[in-house]
Simulated assay, not measured.
Amino acid sequence: MADNQVAVVVVAGGRGLRAGGDRPKQYRLLGHAPMLRQSLEIFTRHAEVSLVQPVIHRDDESQFRNAANGLDVLTPAFGGATRQESVCAGLEALAPHRPAVVLIHDAARPFASEILISRAIAAGRGGAAIPGIAVSDTIKEVDADNRVVHTPERARLRAVQTPQAFDFELILAAHRRAREAGRTDFTDDGALAEWAGLPVAVFEGETGNIKMTTQQDFARHEARELAALGDIRVGSGYDVHAFTQGDHVWLGGLKIPHTQGVVGHSDADVVLHAAVDAILGALADGDIGAHFPPSDPQWKGASSDRFLKFAVERLAARGGRLMHLDVTVVCEAPKVGPHRDAMRQRIAEIAGIAVDRVAVKATTSEKMGFTGRCEGLVAYATATVRLPWESP
């Protein structure tokens, strides 16, 4: 066993149906990143944590790879039908590493602070410890008919959170015992530890360490974030490329078959180039040519998704959020309509925003001008961003 090695099991195998949306809640965006990524990052950044073991649903491998891209985490374990089975799978995956302490954390709690994690690690070296906060409401115990049968003493109650911390060998043995006994219904590892006879201590939790459970939780979080972003800005972008010999064009991050290609130093994606300039314009941060000059050979043939990611990262570095991106393509051909929804989806993926925050429209120039003569194509973009308010 590593004397001081600390590992973390991040449980992300559930379906999160109460949160609504078109994907499990752990992959929904909070700001510019999936919630799971934020829950993993708080541990990968912590100086005392050596190993981060994700546990995911078997059907979510692709979403997980996107969410965890670039993070120093272990290969995910696959969860079971219950949270307890998923935690056990994570512990078994860590068994060859034999850490001294393990923290068990729900991916739906992405706001745990570095201080809370440090408290958990210190408390876990004593055997078993869980974070809790004092209950401010009076709690009633009711029967099957919703009649009050008991009012517990409020001063003795705690609302329990994660990360919960344990001596690794003790909690692994407890989970194995529960599995052998046919117990798979524990929703809390502290309760499982109690069942196994382990003394469980409570250390101070955090009121900000909330669990994202319902659609209302996500709505409240976004409302709080937006309330802090009072500086609303709009930027515009424009790009044009001439047609040349070829068999495809790049538009909105998609390779679209066509009877011609386009002239450009990179992949000449007018949609993404216009979007980049719109975001940079809202930031008053130059233009695409200033950051990616065509005179620089490293950008020859480069995929324009790199440029859009760069612009979004510049926005995020200033604490801002991309609220909406509106693009209009002007050309006689190729036809944009059949690809519109796929374009919106691809742009949303690159920019890290919801697809309903991306609009793609197309029109012709009624046979007039260079676009009307099929000599090239044009894209216009408008980006709406929100930044933290700064006094003049």
Score class of each variant (00 low, 15 high):
381 A>F: 07
88 C>S: 14
346 R>V: 06
235 G>Y: 06
245 Q>M: 12
136 S>H: 12
6 V>C: 06
345 Q>M: 05
236 S>V: 15
6 V>T: 12
270 V>Y: 00
129 A>S: 15
28 R>Q: 13
324 H>K: 13
224 R>H: 08
201 A>Q: 11
321 R>D: 03
7 A>G: 10
240 V>H: 12
266 S>G: 11
23 R>A: 12
171 I>S: 10
196 A>Y: 05
164 Q>R: 10
37 R>G: 07
359 A>S: 15
354 A>G: 13
66 N>F: 07
94 L>W: 09
147 R>C: 12
294 P>M: 11
377 L>K: 01
170 L>D: 15
37 R>I: 07
270 V>C: 01
66 N>Y: 04
148 V>A: 14
165 A>L: 10
109 R>N: 01
100 A>M: 10
354 A>M: 06
170 L>I: 13
206 E>F: 03
121 I>D: 06
156 R>T: 13
107 A>G: 06
217 D>Q: 00
26 Q>L: 01
371 T>S: 10
24 P>K: 03
201 A>H: 09
158 R>G: 02
227 A>S: 05
24 P>E: 01
337 G>Q: 15
138 T>K: 13
322 L>G: 06
290 A>D: 15
68 A>I: 05
233 R>P: 04
331 C>Q: 12
300 K>A: 13
111 F>M: 03
43 F>S: 04
196 A>F: 07
144 A>Q: 15
261 G>L: 01
23 R>E: 08
376 G>C: 00
193 A>F: 08
374 C>K: 14
36 L>I: 02
3 D>M: 14
297 P>N: 07
173 A>E: 14
184 T>H: 15
10 V>P: 05
174 A>P: 08
102 V>D: 05
250 W>E: 12
302 A>P: 00
73 V>T: 08
68 A>M: 10
185 D>V: 03
355 V>N: 01
145 D>M: 13
252 G>K: 00
279 I>S: 07
134 A>I: 04
284 A>Q: 14
392 P>I: 06
